[in-house]
Computed example of a mutant assay.
Amino acid sequence: MYGPTETPESEELSFEGPERWSRWAAWVRAHTRLAAAVGASIAVLAVIAGGRLLYERSRQPLPPPEGSSPQTGHLSVYLCATEPFWEKCRGPATAADRRKIEAALRSIPEIQSFRFETREQSLANLRKTVVRASNPEGLPDLFGSLRPEDVPESYYAALRPGDWPGVRQRVEALPGVSYVRTFRDDMWWGKADVAITLCPRASSLEKRCARRGAATEAEKAAVLDRIHSLPGIETVYFEDRTHAVKALGDVSRQGLDANGDLPGLSEVFYLKLDRPVTKDLSPSFSDLPGVAGVRPVSTP
C-alpha cells in the first residue's frame, strides 16, 4: 500500500539503491544505441537524398550567360542586280557604282573593314545570317532551289560601336545599292560551340517540325539525356522563348515584344565543348522528336 504522498511513478523514478541505478544505466545505454542507429539511418538517407538532388541539379541546363549584348556587328550591302528586286534599282550596279560604294565604306568611322562578296559568297553568307537570326529548321526548303545567280552581289562590313542606323541610311542612299541590313554580333560566339534547335510552336515548312507544334517537356528531357550521354560536353545552356526573342531583337537591331506573335521562333540548347568541334553532331539527335536541327555556332 502507498501512503498519501507516494505513487508508483515516484517509486519507479527513484534512484536509491544499486539495483535501480543499474537498471537506469542499462536503459540509457540501450536507448543511446537505438538513438545512434536511428540517427545514422537518417543521416544516410539525407546523404542519399541530397546526392540525388545535387545529381539532378547538375544535369539541368544553365540559363544563358548574363551580360550585355555585343556592341560590334556587321553590315550587309546588297547591290542592284539585273532582276529589279527593289524599286530604287534601275539596273545592275556598275563599276562606277562599286567604286563610289567602296569609297563611302572606307570613309565611315563605324566600319572597321569590308570585303566584296560574289554571288556564291553572298548566298552562303545569307544562309548563315538566316540560321543565326531565325529558326533553321526549313533551310533546305528555303534555299534548296536558290542558285547563285538568284542572289545579288554584296559587300560585307564589320561594324564598330556607333550610329548604325545612320550608317545604314547613308549607304542605302548610294547608287547601285538595293538594300542594307545591319546585325549585331551573336552573343553565343565564343560561349557555345553547338546549337540544338527545338521545334517551334508553328511551322509551315514540310520538315520534321511541320504540323506538330512546339517541343514538349518530355521531348526536351529526352534531348537533355542524349546530350549528357555524349563525351566532351563541358556546359549546357538552354535559351527559352523569352530570351530568344530578346536575342533576335538584339541581333537584328529591332525591338521585339516577348509576348508578340512569333510562332516560328525556337527554343535552343547551346553546348560548350571541352575540345574543338571535329564532327557533325546532327546524327546523334536525328531520331529524337522535337528537334528541328543541329548546327555549329560560328562567326560568319
Rank of each mutant, 00 (worst) to 15 (best):
D141W: 12
D150S: 08
G138P: 09
V77C: 06
A157L: 05
I108Y: 06
P161C: 03
Y155V: 02
F116A: 15
L75F: 07
G190A: 04
S134N: 15
C89V: 02
Q169F: 10
R90E: 13
W189D: 03
V131H: 11
V131A: 13
S134R: 12
S145C: 03
F114M: 08
V177Y: 00
V177G: 00
R170Y: 08
R147A: 09
T94F: 03
L126H: 08
Y78Q: 13
T129Q: 14
R170C: 05
D163C: 08
S107I: 05
W164N: 08
P109M: 01
W86Q: 14
G144T: 04
E102Q: 12
L126S: 12
L174E: 00
L126R: 09
P109R: 06
P152R: 00
C80M: 03
A192S: 10
R147C: 00
V180R: 01
W189S: 01
E102I: 02
W164Y: 07
T82D: 14
P109D: 05
A133Q: 11
P84K: 09
D163R: 08
P109N: 05
W86F: 13
D163F: 07
C80F: 04
L159R: 06
V151H: 00
W188M: 11
W188N: 03
G162I: 06
V180S: 00
G162T: 07
P140G: 05
T94H: 05
A103Y: 01
C80Y: 02
Y156I: 09
T118P: 07
R98V: 09
V167Q: 05
L139Y: 06
E172K: 12
G91K: 03
P140R: 02
R90K: 14
R115E: 15
L79P: 06
F85T: 12
I108A: 10
G144H: 01
V177P: 02
A81M: 07
D141Q: 15
R168C: 07
Q169Y: 10
T118H: 06
L146C: 05
E120R: 13
E87D: 13
S76I: 15
G176C: 00
V180I: 03
T118D: 09
P148K: 01
C80H: 04
H74Y: 15
R106Q: 14
A104G: 03
A133F: 04
V167C: 07
R184L: 02
R98M: 11
D150L: 00
